[in-house]
Design a protein around this nucleic acid. Structure first.
Lengths: 202, 202
DNA sequence: GCCCTTATTGACCGGTCGGCCAGTTAATTG
DNA sequence: CAATTAACTGGCCGACCGGTCAATAAGGGC
C-alpha cells in the first residue's frame, strides 16, 4: 500500500487481471464484487473501471487472457508432433491430462464458462479439435486405428474424460476404490488405446 | 395471481422449489435473487423465508430434492440388472447417457455443485458407483472384461464422458465434424466396449 | 360460532452492489 | 519549465440484496 507507487498502466492491468482471475475461478462471476478484486490487488475500484470499463468487460478480459494462453500452449503442443501413430495420440492424451492437472484454474474457468453458455471459448477449441482429429484421421488411414469411428468423437472422448476428471475431483474423491490421478489416467489409456486399435475383423 | 388462493403448504413449497430449481439451474446460486424466485412462483419473498428459512437453506433443499430423485432413478435402474456381462454395461451406459440427455437440469445442477465444492452429492454418487463397479468386477471375474483395470475407473470413464458431453454441449456444438448425441454415443461405445474386452494376450 | 394455528402479506431495515464523477498526482512532451 | 495526458483516488448515487416483523386472513378442531 505505501510502496513508491510507480505508475505503470500495463503492470497495474496485469495485477488486476490476476486478482480477478483468482477470485472468478474460485467463486464464479456473480459471487465476486469489484470491491473484493480491488482490495486483493491493492487498487481502487474506480481504477478497475478506468482500465476495463465494467465488471462484464473485466470478466471478458480475464477469460480472453486465460484462454489465449491455453490455446497457445495446446497449439504449440499439437504442432510439434511429427508422424501420426498410436504413440502420438497416447502422448497427446498424457500431455493434455497433465496440462489440466497442472492448470486447475483453466479447468474451472472453462467450467464456469460452459455454465454461462459462453460460446467464444468454443470457437477457440474448435481449431484445436480440428488439428487433433486430423491426426486421428491420418492414423486411421495408415491402418493403425479402426476407421469406423468419427475422429472428432475420438478427440471428444478423451477431452471429456480428462476435463471432467478434474472438474469433478472433489466430487469423486470419496468414491470407494478410486485411485490417484496417474492410476486413473493409465487405466483410461489402456481402455482407450485398445478400443481404438484396428483388429482383423475391421 | 388472482386465483382462489387455496392454502396448501405442501403445494406452495413445491411451487417454490420448482421455481427456485429452474432459476438456480439457469443462472447459478449467486446470480439468483429471492425476489426473482418469489415473482416466478407468484408468492411473496417473506413466504419463502417462512417455508425455507434462508436463501442458503432453499438452495440446499433444491439440491436435496433433485439429487434424491436422481439417485432413486439410477438405483432402480442398477438394481433391476440381472447377469453381469458386456451387454449389461453397454445398456447401462446407454441408459445413463439417455438419462442425462432427458434431464438437463440434473446435469447443470451437478455442475454448479461441483464448482461450489459441494461434497454432499458426491456421497450420494458413491453408492451408485460402488454398485456399478461391482458389476464390472463380476464381468471381469467371468473372464469377459480385461482385469488389468480398476473397475471403479471403468465406471468413472463412462460417467465422465456422458456427463461432460452434455455439460459442454454449447461449447462443442460448433466443433467441426461433430455428430449428433446418438452418433457420439455409438462411437464412444465402440471404443469403450472393445477397449474393455479381454483378448488372448491378457 | 369461536379460537388457535399457520400460511401469507407488505412495509421496512441495514448493508452491499456496480457505476459515476470531480479532483489529485505522477509521468510525458514540446 | 510549463502544459498536456493519463493513472489514480475518495466520495457519492440509486438500485437491489437477504432478512425481519407486525399485521392479516384462511382453515381446522372444539
Amino acid at each position: 500500500m505505501n510502496e513508491p507507487q510507480t505508475r505503470d498502466a500495463e503492470l497495474t492491468r496485469g495485477r488486476i487481471l490476476e486478482a480477478a482471475l483468482d477470485l472468478f475461478v474460485d467463486k464464479g462471476f456473480a459471487d465476486v464484487s469489484m470491491r473484493e478484486i480491488a482490495e486483493r490487488c491493492g487498487v481502487t475500484k474506480s481504477l478497475i473501471h478506468h482500465h476495463f470499463g465494467s465488471k462484464d468487460a473485466l470478466w471478458e478480459a480475464v477469460k480472453e487472457h486465460a484462454f489465449a494462453m491455453y490455446a497457445l500452449d495446446q497449439k504449440t503442443e499439437l504442432e510439434q508432433a511429427t508422424n501420426a501413430d498410436a504413440k502420438l495420440l497416447r502422448d497427446g492424451v498424457v500431455k493434455y491430462f497433465e496440462y489440466l492437472r497442472d492448470n486447475p484454474k483453466v479447468v474451472r474457468l472453462l467450467a464456469w464458462s460452459h455454465l454461462e453458455g459462453d460460446e467464444s471459448c468454443g470457437e477457440m477449441d474448435a481449431e484445436l479439435v480440428r488439428l487433433g482429429s486430423e491426426r486421428v484421421r491420418q492414423t486411421q488411414e495408415a491402418g493403425i486405428f479402426r476407421n469406423d469411428v468419427n475422429p472428432t468423437h475420438v478427440v471428444c472422448t478423451f477431452v471429456h474424460v480428462c476435463t471432467h476428471w478434474f472438474e469433478a475431483r472433489s466430487h469423486h474423491a470419496q468414491w470407494p476404490g478410486i485411485g490417484s490421478d496417474d492410476e486413473f489416467r493409465d487405466d483410461f489409456l489402456k481402455i482407450f488405446m485398445r478400443g481404438l486399435a484396428r483388429t482383423d475383423s475391421d
